[in-house]
Design a binder for these strands. Structure first.
Lengths: 240, 240
DNA sequence: TTTTATATCCTGTATAGACAAGTTGTCAAC
DNA sequence: GTTGACAACTTGTCTATACAGGATATAAAA
């Protein structure tokens, strides 16, 4: 872990623990330079990370002010596994692994986006329940290679811990799409949907640092239990 | 506009025009240093912007590779106005301004998040239609101050052009939340909803660079017309 | 042929210094 | 009291340099 990461981590924790409160200014970059014994650019890199996360707002000529966004709406955006969210939010969700088997066909959505239709993968289907109510069904396709198999214990817990820890792969980015669709009968039954049987579908393609695609996911959310929070910054450069 | 912004803009356009194609490597940082006649750190800042946007992927020891994410799912995340999307995607949407009037009460959602219940604002309600079909209803509350009034012509076109251009305000960041709810009768009628009358609600609070809140928005989307695309990078620092 | 160095690209990180530009308080001049 | 110049802070940008460490091709050694 680099200096700038450690400083960013340290400041994030201090903000979280209330040492720096929303509305407060952080010490100036010059002061942080002395505090951490590094150069100003290293401090600036750390602050830039916090800025991107929405933890602080940098204001030219004034300083870096702590934002209170986190208090209300925790970001459910980004690449965050269900298990990570579960821990952070203290949700006490229960995961049931419905399927965990090799598979050689991929949903049409992903084929349309250039994935080979016969791409071998491990198919994992999991039901997430909170307070004995079905909330989400995750259908994951873990591509082979780079992933050969998923131990049952891993499927029950954190996929990402296993991929990053055991396999040593470098999860880097994902594209994500949210739509609302009519659920198929299987999903409708599993989520105990009523009425129009509308379900929120989150589909994502996840990539390693070397741009290798390693995971396809379809998440089906009960609409009344679905919430997506995001923090966004206005883009400086315009894409035409 | 700074050097790094101009370089980022220039590279983004070259990628868009196919001068650099998905899968290609950009010239190395050293080569770009010569091309643009700047220092390496300036080049790196520019590349970092493209990296954040998901236009490229930086790989240590190899180079910066152009991603093809943009081709399939254009990011509808971030702070982007409907009018900006309309232009970029060539949607030919038609906007009807239903209301544009001073207002002194704010929806409960925003009050719960700390906004003063009696906060004065300009209330603008707009219906967006594509191919003569109602798609979205936007309910905007533009806070007074910093915004005193919205000319009718502006409400029909781009709010953000006016706020950034005419008023010279510096739009910086927003928090956003997506849920699915039962529509009230007014929205249901305007969007011609059927069945369960479920509607996708996007609520956001938008802020200026100096952390001033200036806009509250409730967007009601017809579920069958709703699509949200996002590009996300895995966070290096962990928020507990 | 296979393996092992090695040179040489690349990006990542860190440092030090300089100047521009926004913000704020002070203090003198009016 | 008000205004305006100024100094002293802040962050933003840019430069130049250095070294670490990953990736890769080539050449030497086994």
């Amino acid at each position: 872990m680099s200096k700038q990461d450690m400083i960013a981590q340290d400041l994030a924790e201090k903000i979280h623990h209330g040492l720096y409160c929303p509305g407060d200014y952080l010490p100036s970059e010059h002061q942080l330079t002395d505090l951490y014994g590094t150069s100003r650019e290293t401090i600036r890199s750390a602050l830039s990370q916090l800025n991107d996360l929405g933890l602080i707002q940098k204001i030219k000529g004034k300083g870096s002010i702590v934002l209170d966004y986190q208090k209300f709406t925790f970001p459910v955006s980004g690449i965050t596994s269900f298990q990570e969210l579960n821990q952070k939010l203290g949700m006490h969700a229960v995961t049931t692994v419905l399927k965990n088997e090799p598979c050689t066909s991929i949903p049409q959505y992903f084929v349309n986006r250039g994935v080979d239709a016969d791409q071998p993968s491990i198919y994992i289907e999991r039901l997430r329940m909170i307070d004995h109510e079905p909330v989400v069904i995750d259908r994951d396709f873990l591509l082979t290679p780079p992933i050969d198999e998923i131990p049952q214990k891993v499927a029950e817990n954190s996929l990402y811990d296993y991929i990053e820890g055991e396999l040593g792969l470098d999860i880097s980015y994902a594209s994500k799409e949210i739509t609302v669709e009519k659920a198929d009968d299987e999903v409708a039954a599993q989520l105990k949907l009523t009425g129009d049987q509308l379900v929120v579908v989150v589909r994502s393609l996840s990539f390693l640092n070397d741009t290798t695609l390693f995971q396809l996911t379809e998440s089906y959310h009960r609409p009344d239990k679905f919430k997506f929070s995001d923090f966004a910054r206005r883009q400086k450069i315009k894409l035409k």
